[in-house]
């Protein structure tokens, strides 16, 4: 068994009840992934598995066996910020910074979902491509709670990126 974390193969934990979140944080010291509820209710622990966003608190580390896990530490190449990270800085999409890694990971996946044409609950015509609106971004990011109130900045950061890509 092996999990690929940010491009590096690692052995899964021996204790099978360990969540991917605890494994990343406690065993691999990848503490950029945050724990906000451990209940699947806040999105702070969002990571990408094979490019799709998931909650690492409700994923057993063992379930990631054979998969590619990307955490906030693995988004950027080299020292430069990843485009999503840079946009969050430019648009003041953060305050305390605690929900931020989860928001950034979720936004990264969201941009891909928009590209593949996945609908959301607020998409009017499910058979057409979702329009690029703030409401679409807001619905698609609603799984990531923010308590400081950086919502406007986060949404404008993601919307700007999405518009730039179309």
């Amino acid at each position: 068994m092996a999990i690929t974390v940010n491009g590096t193969k690692v052995d899964p934990p021996g204790d099978m009840r360990v969540s991917l979140l605890d494994f990343l944080r406690d065993d691999l010291h990848l503490t950029g992934t945050k724990i906000g509820c451990n209940q699947g209710a806040c999105g702070a622990c969002t990571v990408l598995i094979d490019g799709e966003r998931v909650l690492s608190c409700l994923t057993l580390a063992a379930q990631a066996d054979g998969r590619e896990v990307t955490t906030i530490e693995g988004l950027a190449e080299g020292d430069a910020l990843h485009a999503v990270q840079a946009a969050f800085v430019d648009h003041d999409g953060l305050q305390c910074g605690y929900c931020t890694p989860g928001q950034v990971c979720a936004a990264t996946a969201l941009l891909n979902e928009l590209r593949t044409g996945s609908p959301s609950y607020v998409t009017g015509d499910l058979t057409a491509a979702a329009p690029l609106t703030a409401e679409e971004i807001r619905e698609r990011l609603s799984g990531n709670l923010c308590r400081c109130g950086a919502h406007n900045g986060i949404v404008s950061a993601v919307l700007a990126l999405a518009e730039a890509r179309t």
């Binding site: 799709e52 966003r53 998931v54 979720a106 593949t116 044409g117 499910l126 058979t127 799984g143």
Partner: peptide, 26 residues
């Protein structure tokens, strides 16, 4: 997201999209 569900069973697509969050639906 399946095009057949979206086209022929939209209530199912929308019901699923109404639930939880994108992460949890994945």
């Amino acid at each position: 997201a399946d095009p057949r569900i979206r086209a022929h069973y939209p209530m199912l697509s929308r019901a699923v999209l109404a639930g939880a969050s994108a992460q949890i639906r994945n």
